[in-house]
C-alpha cells in the first residue's frame, strides 16, 4: 500500500510502486481531468502539482509522490484556479480541450512565481505543453488576463 494525498484527501493505493502517478490518479482514484498524451514527458497533458511543482505525472512513479501533496486540475485551489479558469473562459481558449488541464496546471506555477509575467516568461513556462488545436495565442492572452485580475484583486 502506498499512501497518497491527492487534492487534500488521503488515499492508500495498492499498485506496483513503478506505476506512473498519472494512472493511479486516473484509474485507481478516478480523477480523469489529468490526461495521458505522450507517456514520455513530451507534451504536458498529464501535469499535476507535486508539492507545488508542475510535474509530468506520466513519468513520475507513484512512489515519488508518497507522503507528498498531489494537486490535480480538479483540486486546484481557487486562489490561482479561479482567475485562471475565468480567464480561460473569457478568452474562449479551449478547442478540443484535451490539453487544457495540463496547460492550466502549468500556468498556475507561473502565476505563483511571478505576478505579471512577460511574453517571454509565458514562453519559458508554457512551451512544455503541447496544444495540437493551436490555442497558444489564446492561452497567452488568458495568462495575461489572469495575471491582471490577480494583481487587481490583491492590490498589487
Amino acid at each position: 500500500m502506498i499512501k497518497l494525498k491527492v487534492n487534500r484527501k488521503e488515499y492508500a493505493v495498492d499498485v506496483s510502486p513503478d506505476t506512473p502517478l498519472l494512472w493511479v490518479i486516473r484509474e485507481t482514484i478516478g480523477l480523469t481531468g489529468t490526461k495521458f498524451g505522450c507517456g514520455a514527458a513530451q507534451c504536458g497533458a498529464c501535469t499535476v502539482h507535486l508539492d507545488g511543482e508542475a510535474v509530468r505525472s506520466c513519468v513520475t512513479a507513484v512512489e515519488r509522490a508518497a507522503g507528498r501533496e498531489v494537486v490535480t486540475i480538479e483540486g486546484l485551489p481557487d486562489d490561482l484556479g479561479m482567475p485562471l479558469k475565468d480567464a480561460w473562459i473569457a478568452e474562449d481558449v479551449p478547442q478540443c480541450g484535451y490539453c487544457q488541464s495540463g496547460q492550466i496546471m502549468a500556468a498556475a506555477v507561473l502565476l505563483r512565481e511571478t505576478t505579471r509575467p512577460t511574453d517571454e516568461d509565458i514562453d519559458d513556462c508554457m512551451t512544455g505543453n503541447i496544444c495540437r488545436c493551436g490555442t497558444y495565442p489564446r492561452i497567452r492572452r488568458a495568462i495575461h488576463r489572469a495575471a491582471a485580475a490577480l494583481s487587481k484583486g490583491t492590490g498589487k
Binding site: 480523477l31 481531468g33 474562449d92
Partner: peptide, 19 residues
C-alpha cells in the same frame, strides 16, 4: 459567442473517450 463546452474543459470534468 463563447463556447458552451469551455467551463467543463477548464475544470477537468469534460469526458473524452479515454475517460
Amino acid at each position: 459567442t463563447r463556447r458552451l463546452d469551455t467551463p467543463e474543459k477548464v475544470n477537468g470534468t469534460a469526458v473524452f473517450g479515454i475517460d
